[in-house]
Amino acid sequence: MGAQEQEEDSAPSEGKKHQKTSKDVYFCVLPEKYEPLIEEEEETEEERRKRKEEKRRKRKNRCKKYRKNVRKALSFSWRCLLAGLESMASAYSTPLSAVATVATEVNRASSKA
């Protein structure tokens, strides 16, 4: 009895296997106005040289703009760094008694205003 059930169970699984089928292919008639795509003609040496020159000019202008922006950013950063170093150096080099005097005078000046 058990053998018959196994055979019956295996039969449907064989039917579920993918069978090879043919694909449907459709043909149509081309319209009278049909124009096939035409491959681009070979460009002349002069046109190629002009295109390369234009590309080179655009790249040069783009690099020039980037150099200008980077220069501005670096010079601003350098100025900020120098200002910070100068203030740190002045605070570090002054004696402690002078710092206390300057700090109290600054506090007095700010309270009067």
Rank of each mutant, 00 (worst) to 15 (best):
E5A: 10
P31S: 08
G15A: 13
T44K: 04
K23Y: 03
G2T: 04
K17S: 09
P12Q: 04
D9P: 00
Y34A: 12
D9V: 00
G15R: 13
G2Q: 08
E7V: 02
G15S: 11
E35T: 12
A11D: 10
Y26D: 08
K16W: 08
P31T: 01
E42S: 10
K20F: 04
Y34K: 01
V25I: 15
V29G: 01
G2Y: 03
K33N: 15
K33R: 04
V25G: 00
E42C: 01
V29E: 12
S22V: 10
C28Q: 14
H18V: 12
Q6T: 04
E8L: 07
S13R: 14
G15T: 05
L37C: 01
E5G: 02
K17I: 07
K23T: 10
K20D: 14
E32K: 12
P36K: 06
K17G: 06
E39A: 14
E5I: 04
P31E: 02
Y34C: 04
E14K: 13
F27E: 10
E40P: 04
G2S: 09
G2D: 15
P31G: 04
E35C: 04
E39Q: 11
P12G: 01
Q4K: 07
H18N: 06
S22I: 07
G2F: 03
E43Y: 03
D9Y: 03
I38P: 00
H18C: 01
Y34P: 09
K33C: 03
L30A: 13
V29P: 01
Q6L: 13
E45Y: 05
F27T: 08
V29I: 09
I38R: 15
K17P: 02
A3Q: 12
E42L: 10
K17N: 09
K20E: 13
L37N: 07
Y26H: 12
E45A: 11
Y26M: 06
E14I: 09
V25K: 14
E32N: 07
T21I: 08
A3M: 07
S10K: 09
S10E: 15
V25M: 08
E45G: 01
P12C: 00
E40W: 00
V29F: 02
D24H: 03
C28P: 00
